[in-house]
Amino acid sequence: MSSTATIILIEDEVQIQRFVQAALEDAGFTVHSTPSGRQGVIDTGTRKPDAIILDLGLPDMDGIDVIRQIRSWSNVPMIVLSARTQEAQKVSALDAGADDYLTKPFGTAELLARIRAQLRRHSQTGNPTQESVFTMGDIRVDLVNRQVHRGDALVSLTPIEFRLLAALIRYAGRVVTQRQLLKEVWGPSHIESGHYVRIYMGHLRHKLEADPAQPRYLLTETGVGYRLLADGD
């Protein structure tokens, strides 16, 4: 992963744009900033960035539309910036194709961590040989043989629990909305049965986490979705 990666920052608030750009440039990224959604879409086409950081509240067009437009022809990682009370907005951004979100106010460390995670995942998807074994802490998930070990002990998972875990691993480090999980694990007909995911997440935590009430790996992003936090993220 190269630190000379190019990032487009679409943010209309000058102060925020300034400090984010400074933080990113300090970390060695090349940053192009624009206050307009339209310009952001054009820049994405011309500059071929490695990642996009996008504020949802833009003056000229809805941030969700920016995501949809870019996502229609590019799979560049997109991170949205959003306010704390706007969970619904975050969910729609994620469902529209955004890869992650950051809640304002956010720290530099958090911002950089998220960007690195996205860049890493993006470079991996280009690489077809995805690892068949995934580890987090003392948990080892063998995706080919569908076996899960915690320490030395084999953990027995039901087919749905395994499918859920596998889906989370596919999105490791990123946030997945409840809707995406329902669609991938239960199929499109169960999109409204939100409590299914919560119940099965509970099962998984009880089987995999040391303290299910204070999980280390299977995290809940309240109101938005879930995030599987593997080592190093």
Binding site: E13, I16, F19, D26, G57, K104, A109
Partner: peptide
């Protein structure tokens, strides 16, 4: 109001965070 209060605070916090880690 919440937007006008939050935006300067976000930059304030971001910059302070950035500086203290320098």
């Amino acid at each position: 109001i919440s937007h006008d209060l939050r935006t300067p605070l976000t930059s304030l916090l971001g910059i302070a965070d950035q500086l203290r880690q320098a």
